[in-house]
C-alpha cells in the first residue's frame, strides 16, 4: 500500500497516523514478524522497519543497542528483504537505514529489492537532500517514496527545498538530539510543525513515547506521530513483549482517533 493512500484514508476518517518503528532482527530474526503483528493489532498504521547499520549516528543509545542486537543476531540486507517479503501485513512498510548499506548494495538493486519485497518508502537519516539525487531519481522511477527529515534548526529556505524533494510524508524531528524517549514536548516542536507549510502529510518523531505526548503533537498539527524507542525499550526488556507492544500501541492510537 502506498503511503499517500494510507494518509488519505486516515484523513477521511479524521484520524492521525501512528507510525511504529522497530529494528528488524531485534532481538532475533524469528521474533520480528510477531513483533510487527503486535504493533498492527494495537493499531499501528505504518511500520518503520529499521535495517540495522554498524554506526547509527542519528540514533540514541536505545536504538543503537537494538541495532547491535540485530546485527549480532545475523540481520543483514539479504535477510531483511527476505523477512519483509514474507510479512503478511496490510499496512505500508517503510525501511529506515543508513546510506552506506544502500550505496554498497547498489542504489538500483536496493530500490528494486524494496519494490519486490513490499517496502513503500525509505528514510535515510544520514542522507540530506543535497546528496540524494541518485537515490531520488531511482526511487521516482521505481515508485518508492523517499522521505526527508526537517529539524527545528532547519531554516525556512531549507524547509522549502526539502519539501520539494520529499514524498510520502515529511519527517519532522521534534527536537534537537538523537532518537530516544524524552518527557517533554517543547515549544520548538510546535514551532517547527507550524513552519512546515505543505499538503504533504507531516509525521513527527524523536522523543514521543506515550499517549500524552502524542496528543500534544497531534494538537500542534501533526498528521502522523512516530514512536520508536518506547517500543524498542519494551523489546529490550524481554518481558511480555508482544502484549505490552500491543497495549502501548492501542493506548497511543486511541489519542490518534479522537477528533
Amino acid at each position: 500500500m502506498k503511503l499517500a493512500e494510507k494518509f488519505n484514508e486516515l484523513k477521511n476518517r479524521n484520524e492521525t497516523a501512528l507510525l511504529a518503528y522497530v529494528c528488524a532482527g531485534d532481538p532475533d530474526i524469528d521474533s520480528t514478524p510477531r513483533i510487527v503483528e503486535s504493533l498492527i493489532r494495537g493499531g499501528a498504521d505504518i511500520i518503520e522497519l529499521g535495517l540495522p547499520f554498524s554506526d547509527p549516528v542519528a540514533d540514541g543509545p536505545t536504538i543503537q543497542a537494538a541495532s547491535e542486537r540485530a546485527l549480532s543476531a545475523g540481520m543483514n540486507p539479504d535477510r531483511y528483504f527476505e523477512l519483509v517479503a514474507n510479512l503478511d501485513v496490510q499496512v505500508p512498510l517503510v525501511c529506515m537505514t543508513y546510506y552506506n548499506l544502500i550505496y554498497k548494495r547498489g542504489i538500483e538493486k536496493f530500490v528494486k529489492d524494496c519494490v519486490s519485497s513490499g517496502i513503500s518508502g525509505l528514510i535515510i537519516p544520514d542522507l540530506p537532500a543535497e546528496e540524494s539525487n541518485d537515490l531520488a531519481n531511482c526511487c521516482t522511477q521505481e515508485g518508492v517514496d523517499l522521505i526527508f527529515l526537517v529539524a527545528p534548526v532547519t531554516t525556512d529556505e531549507r524547509i522549502e527545498m526539502i519539501l520539494s524533494k520529499t514524498s510520502g510524508f515529511v519527517y519532522i524531528v521534534s527536537r534537537l538530539g538523537v532518537t530516544g524517549t524524552r518527557s517533554d514536548v517543547t515549544a520548538a516542536t510546535s514551532d517547527i510543525i507550524s513552519r512546515v507549510r505543505t499538503d504533504i502529510p507531516k509525521a513527527v518523531g524523536f522523543g514521543i513515547s506515550n499517549a500524552e505526548q502524542a496528543a500534544k503533537i497531534i494538537d500542534a498539527g501533526a498528521d502522523g506521530v512516530i514512536v520508536g524507542s518506547a517500543f524498542v525499550d519494551i523489546i529490550a526488556s524481554g518481558d511480555n513483549v508482544e502484549k505490552r507492544l500491543e497495549d502501548l500501541t492501542t493506548e497511543i492510537k486511541a489519542v490518534c482517533r479522537r477528533d
Binding site: V57, D126, P128, A129, E130, E131, L149, V150, A151
Partner: peptide, 12 residues
C-alpha cells in the same frame, strides 16, 4: 567527500 549527515547538522 560531501556531507552525509543528519538534517539536524546541515544548518550547523
Amino acid at each position: 567527500g560531501g556531507q552525509f549527515v543528519p538534517e539536524i547538522l546541515m544548518p550547523a
